[in-house]
Simulated scan of single mutants.
Amino acid sequence: MSKPLEALADAGVSVWLDDISRERLRTGNLAALMSTHGVTGVTSNPTIFDKALAEGDAYDEQVADLARRGVSVDEAVRLLTAYDIRWAADTLRPVYDATDRVDGRVSLEVDPRLARDTERTVAEAKALWWLVDRPNLMIKIPATAEGLAAITRVLGQGISVNVTLIFSLARYRQVMDAFLEGLELARSNGHDLSRIQSVASFFVSRVDSEVDKRLDALGTDEARALRGRAAIANARLAYQAYEEVFSGAEWKALEAQGATPQRPLWASTGVKDPAYPDTAYVTELVARGTVNTMPQATLDATDDHAEVTGNTVLGTYERAHADFAALEDAGVNLTEVFGLLEEEGVTKFIDSWESLLAGLSAKLGSAA
């Protein structure tokens, strides 16, 4: 590994890859990144799978077999994605074993069209857990209001969960509550708490994109001076909340029974504004016990030239609170921003899912 990636690992940050494809798996690229870039996990989402299935011929043979069997497009998507996730989980299994089940994780998201339906989300999560059948799987569930109850119930089944699409501190605290309730339920259901892992995926770059757009619209020098500060402040305050919850009495009781904390995961870490350093959402969010899931470009940039100088979160909370206050004073309604980003996040994943279904339906038709 390069010095920046070694420094991240030494600082307690797990580096995950925010991408998966059959081509990446069959060429051995994922296995290579584990040794050269210290990758210890993989996250996926509907957009990633839509892109993967649209490119190349890696899926053609399996698609042809599914067409011959007359499988529905919805079931075909489950089978194709589960195959990739299972393969990735097997590739990462040595990391899972070496880290006592903490890392070596692969995430698979429930159908995003179910984001507002608790019952169907629970049923789909259980079905995907059974279908992939690997202990290092994580089921991704969006942190919508309806998703919170599903998160608790799925964890209560002994299933590891990646909670996705978290934008606000208020929602993040609800996610941590749902996690604690889920562990209590799992314990009462007789599950071994040490085998249940969870991460809370806190989205970063999208916050700056939306807030900066509003600051530019305000047009004042004071507003423009606040550009690029919202996302990092938001994530740092999330880590402060994490520290509070996972040092409390309720958590300590669960920890004594073998439970491990729900780690903050920094998602959407690809920098979208070229005015900012391309590794900003890596180097500014270094904290022990976190995960940073990076698209390939961000991983390569980190490997090449990131300056990792140790923990960059502890000791920043006062400044982060001040940044939030300044944004509100400037006229940015952060509650409105976070609500909009959640709605847009769900919609974007639904659009990608429907694009995936349409593309696969065409492939199945051609194969048939």
Score class of each variant (00 low, 15 high):
K3A: 15
A9S: 15
A11S: 15
G12K: 12
R24T: 13
H37Y: 09
V42I: 12
S44L: 02
N45G: 13
D50R: 12
K51V: 08
E55G: 02
Y59V: 08
Q62E: 13
V63I: 15
D74A: 08
V77W: 01
A82C: 14
R86Q: 08
P94N: 04
Y96N: 01
D97V: 11
T99L: 13
R105E: 10
R105G: 10
L108Q: 03
V110Q: 06
P112N: 04
L114K: 08
A115L: 12
D117P: 13
E119F: 06
A123Y: 07
K126C: 07
A127K: 07
A127V: 04
W130T: 13
R134H: 05
K140C: 02
P142L: 06
R153F: 00
R153T: 15
V163H: 09
S168Y: 10
R173T: 14
M176R: 07
L183F: 11
L185D: 12
A186E: 09
H191E: 11
D192E: 13
I196M: 05
S198H: 02
S209C: 01
V211L: 02
L218D: 04
D221C: 04
R224L: 15
R227A: 05
A233I: 12
Y239K: 06
E244L: 14
A249C: 06
W251M: 00
A253D: 11
L254F: 10
L254T: 14
G258W: 07
R263A: 15
P264G: 05
G270L: 02
K272L: 01
P277Y: 10
D278F: 03
V282D: 05
L285W: 14
V286P: 05
A287Q: 12
G289A: 12
T290P: 11
V291S: 04
A297M: 00
L299S: 03
D303Y: 14
A306T: 06
E307T: 10
G315Y: 10
A320P: 09
A325T: 15
L327M: 08
A330Y: 04
N333Q: 06
E336V: 01
F338E: 02
G339N: 14
E342D: 07
E344S: 04
S352V: 13
E354M: 13
S355C: 04
L360D: 07
S361G: 14
A368N: 11
